[in-house]
Write a protein that binds this DNA or RNA. Sequence first.
DNA 1: ATCATAAATAACTATCTGGTTATTTCAAGG
DNA 2: CCTTGAAATAACCAGATAGTTATTTATGAT
Lengths: 221, 221
Amino acid sequence: MVAQKKQVRDPEKTKARILAAAKVEFARIGLGGARVDVIAARAKVQKRMMYHYFGNKEALFSHVVESVYADFRNAEAALEIDRLEPVAALKTLVTFTWNYYLDNPELITLVNSENLHKARHIEKSKRLAVLNNAFVERMRALLERGVAQGIFRKGLDEVQILISLSGSGFHYLTNQYTGEIVYGRKLMTKAARDARLAFNIDTMLRLVCTTKYLAQLEGTP
Amino acid sequence: MVAQKKQVRDPEKTKARILAAAKVEFARIGLGGARVDVIAARAKVQKRMMYHYFGNKEALFSHVVESVYADFRNAEAALEIDRLEPVAALKTLVTFTWNYYLDNPELITLVNSENLHKARHIEKSKRLAVLNNAFVERMRALLERGVAQGIFRKGLDEVQILISLSGSGFHYLTNQYTGEIVYGRKLMTKAARDARLAFNIDTMLRLVCTTKYLAQLEGTP
DNA sequence: ATCATAAATAACTATCTGGTTATTTCAAGG
DNA sequence: CCTTGAAATAACCAGATAGTTATTTATGAT
């Protein structure tokens, strides 16, 4: 007779616990490095339950990546940047993106892991397709508004802008460890983080605004 | 009696074959995902030889990452951008960096893998410390020259510039798979690659040059 | 109450995997 | 030659690992 905790059934909570633990482990050490046993132990759940609810390790990974991505897109959509002036909207978006990365470091390593696997886990997701489409469309609309007001440059490609916008923060953070060695400097102190955000906002404005508007900004600081 | 190829001894070649195979495997699937047996098979070498020459899997990984990084820095140093006009030097550096990433895709996944492991494999490398130091110093000197000529903005931080310079290409390439899904567009066609390089050159110029100089450039296209 | 079903547990297994042991073979210096 | 140390080979192993089988138990509908 083995001492045994009374079973309390709560499928939603069990699923959520498995997902949360998987998110931590996959983010910490990648799909290849993560161990099913460790995830189960962290979730305080029998390993069998992971197989019950998610099928296998890779399906669990797919679930994690999709939900992390979806949370990110939904949070951005909630900004409703279409209600702001173009320049304010752009600053808001850069700041939000940077802070979201800082607050959700798993997003970064999970996206990297997913790219190592050629994005095959989110390839087929209809849910992400919809969210991503709207995301790109919001930037297209923002650029259009800025151009109409004579503030933004004509003919910019919203995809290039979005890649640079995410990259300016993402790259800094994902490469923070090799970065500190390469540049011989702490990159994650409060001062360093603030400096990078300010730099990124400046970068995006220089990238998107007309030279004329930039000169005007410099004239009235 | 087992058929057995006559041993031909060539320690240098054996080491090189192990390193080359390890580079491919670690780049393909990460430190956690790579298998020692697969590396040995790919190198056409007895697994024991890897342990003989490199000690263990992680030491082999360290060796690979360090040499890949060193090759990159040495190639950049060979550009001798200090012989070029500031603007030409910057364009050359952006173009070189982009092409180097394209020609050496292992660099990107290895750097990502190393960051997942908090850069502990290159932390202690004296060789990289020297190379990295010179690398940062070259950009500092370039910015200084540009400022002296009244072309570059004053007070720029060479580290921020370098992070953005590498990131503008690195981020595009490392996230190419999720990128194609997010943006609903092929990112690696010849046209797409050329467009990104042109965009990155433009970005770096806008970032570094004075507004006055930029306006001048626009006036005479 | 009883029953059907999903939730949870426990123990197990085939295979994989990093690393080792034991042995043989080559090649260079004396 | 012949000795000696490094290079190479082959077989092996203990622990890890993803996934399974078999069984029990809680819960909600009837």
